[in-house]
Design a protein around this nucleic acid. Structure first.
Lengths: 220, 220
DNA sequence: ATCGACTTACTTACAAGTCAGTAAGTATGC
DNA sequence: GCATACTTACTGACTTGTAAGTAAGTCGAT
């Protein structure tokens, strides 16, 4: 997104900060309106991707003009980043115990999430599209997915260690990588052919296998 | 890409077919030039994605103008489809025995490919970006990836059956889905953090586990 | 072998549209 | 009265695709 030409075009840093970053927040319904925009962004970026998803369409779905969206988030990139953060926050707020759960509970929640996802196609599509796009040069979500995956890998490796009693760090990280890969990879397959792939069944079976093998290795 | 407006704008069907589809192919170096364009397309679409990848950049890398590219492939969509087909053909031609291999040899070749891919970042990136994009509404590569995954799933399930002696169709297809998911999912993780993920090791270990479990089930 | 008819492989120039971002104004809550 | 939450109007950059022209390759008939 950020090319050399963009830098040349940029105006001297004046008061261009988006509304949300400012100190005061006078209007009562501001948070509400911003959420409407963020939800619209999920729809549009999920359906069309970040590059092809247009601000006008996001704005329309939120009931304002595209300039209104830019008023709130400063730039298209700002909107995407805000949307990603919002999504994370919502998941934590909506299902508070999930991310904080420890041990077996965390793994159970992982499988539950996969099951819920079969009824939330839009969310799955947004995740798959954006994580695919994020590996391109200079994509605004690059860092987000990078740290997300790193954090998740370490977290899962830790829990797998707890559950299995295995202490081989490399083995635990590899297993975590494989589990994440199965979940993410299946999403794409499921989106392209929902009838051919039973995500929850395959994920839970894979998880069982991984834990069983880690236990066996720990015992040996 | 194909909207209602396109249909209205379309000229009466005259001689608008791209060069390649015509009967005669006069110039000797045509195939060579077309290949140069297709390779450029791999680079550009791999680095930026299909939506953000511009024809001008493809053309530049191939040493012509964007109108020249359109002369050969008719449209941007035509170029992408041709590129996808070319890639498949090249793989078969470059490693003739690979796709046709049966039984254990096929599985060994899968792992070999993963290993090779660690030295072909561009190819991996193109595949990951485009397969992610392909789940969006009306993406030109949607059908390509849909059938590619379906074919691969059935093929792998068949080979897993041969190798393990297991005859549970559902189980074999699930295992195939999981194996494909691991390979595809790891690619994204590897692209985002190459040092954190050892693709060949994890894939071959996953494959071993899958075969072992299918054998155990078959024996029971 | 070579001449002429035709096709191919491009180029430059343009059309038409899309998109993010800016500037300036208005209305409304605080 | 002042910042906020917008809107309208506009700009400029970039897009794909088309039209028209030119040079060169190919081929059949001589």
């Amino acid at each position: 997104m950020a090319t050399i030409r963009d830098a040349a075009r940029a105006k001297p840093m004046d008061e261009r900060r988006p509304a949300a970053e400012r100190v005061q927040r006078p209007h009562a319904k501001t948070t509400e309106r911003r959420e409407a925009v963020l939800k619209a962004a999920m729809n549009v970026f999920g359906a069309r991707g970040y590059n092809k998803g247009a601000l006008v369409e996001v704005a329309e779905q939120a009931g304002m003009t595209h300039a209104g969206v830019l008023h709130h988030f400063g730039s298209k990139e700002g909107l995407l980043v805000a949307m990603l953060k919002y999504r994370d926050g919502e998941e934590v707020a909506g299902v508070p115990a999930r991310a904080q759960a420890e041990g077996p509970a965390f793994l159970a929640h992982l499988v539950d999430t996969v099951d819920e996802n079969t009824r939330r196609r839009g969310v799955v599509q947004a995740y798959s599209v954006l994580s695919g796009e994020s590996v391109t040069d200079g994509h605004p979500a690059h860092e987000y997915f990078q740290t997300r995956l790193d954090v998740l890998r370490v977290k899962i490796a830790g829990v797998l260690g707890e559950v299995s009693g295995n202490t081989d760090e490399q083995e635990l990280l590899d297993s975590a990588s494989a589990l994440i890969a199965v979940m993410d990879g299946l999403q794409v397959q499921w989106l392209l052919n929902p009838d051919a792939v039973d995500m929850p069944r395959i994920v839970s079976r894979t998880l069982d296998e991984i834990v069983a093998r880690l236990r066996a290795q720990a015992g040996a």
